[in-house]
Design a protein around this nucleic acid. Sequence first.
DNA 1: AGCAAACCGGACCGTGGTCCTGTTTTAGGA
DNA 2: TCCTAAAACAGGACCACGGTCCGGTTTGCT
Lengths: 217, 217
Amino acid sequence: MTGSVPPSPPSGAPDGRKDLTLLPVGEPPQQLRADAARNRTRLLEAASRLLVECGAANLTMEAVASAAGVGKGTVFRRFGDRTGLLLALLDHREQQLQAAFLSGPPPLGPGAPAAQRLHAFGPAVIRHEHDHHELILATRADPLRTYGVPAYGLRVAHIAMLLREAGVEGDAELLAHTLLGCLDTALVHHLSVARGMPLDRLEAAWHDLVTRLGAER
Amino acid sequence: MTGSVPPSPPSGAPDGRKDLTLLPVGEPPQQLRADAARNRTRLLEAASRLLVECGAANLTMEAVASAAGVGKGTVFRRFGDRTGLLLALLDHREQQLQAAFLSGPPPLGPGAPAAQRLHAFGPAVIRHEHDHHELILATRADPLRTYGVPAYGLRVAHIAMLLREAGVEGDAELLAHTLLGCLDTALVHHLSVARGMPLDRLEAAWHDLVTRLGAER
DNA sequence: AGCAAACCGGACCGTGGTCCTGTTTTAGGA
DNA sequence: TCCTAAAACAGGACCACGGTCCGGTTTGCT
């Protein structure tokens, strides 16, 4: 998710957030001044537009700034750095996935047995990351931030919970990291694109692994 | 390993390589002209020196060039880009690890049963990556190259071989990727440094995972 | 209205990377 | 041994971009 909150730590309530009822993990509401919030929105919209036009690799901070009609400094003040902006862009899309596994319909969402939810999780993430791989990969320029980001923490917590709920023994948290490792965008991209491996095989490996860890389907 | 071989593809024999009897996977020998090879060495030495002085983050291509007494263009001609240079620096150190698991003493090297070698592999890699995490992390600026690099491929092949030899069922190659995922530098660094998790726990998780996959100790 | 805090915008800097000119070195055949 | 063509080189101008900084302005609160 956001991944960088350089300025003010004050927390509050009124935030121009969308109607996403669940508010999965959202970026820190951190109330912004009216103009700042407006500019933030403008920036994200401009960036989103430029993203489809030029691709993540050619997305420059200056272009985003001028497309949004604000100064360059504003972009950095708001998002910290390029990675922060990309993370914010990603965050918006990430919420769909989060909503799906936190409160969507079974077997991914609550309602199904933990083991089934675990099995459903892999393909869901693979598909999600496949759809946004360009943006995600661009985000990885700063490798350490990958794991510090709220979205990652949420996935770990979610999987660890399902593992425990499914009665899987062992270090649930580390097993969660391991499982997430198989879904890593760069890895999936390398295997599927560079090495021509069909996604079916990756998904099969996921199911196999989950099953072996003790979560019968 | 090298990771980038921008120029001439000609392959040959005589290379000024060191006495490393095994020649684990070494970078493509690709015979360079005498002066080119000499400059390559100078550059790597200069970079290595600057690395300990300034840290990977402050290692600039221009500084390396001038410290080696060559022109900036030469650095890029040789290594392609910054990541290529860092990868080359890493390659040198990587060979020690490769020698250890390819031809070193048991239980890491040949001579021990596959299961034991598998168990020994995790801690060895964790330690190796811990020692060079700064350089490795700097290398990750280009996430896709991580998996394309020969060193990674070698590790995958090695683990997949051990898995098969140990009689582990399933998709050996993908299991190998999964196992390597637990050893990822950025992940290990995040867990141990940022989250204060003791390395023992990471190693225990490795052993547990290997065992669960069917490789008894 | 008045004030502090937050913000805006753009000048500015360092670095990665490209490219070009003229020069030096090497390899290998006569 | 010498000569020649090809390859590599020095080195610096040049560009684009990420990121920082600061002076002037706006905003929100009292």
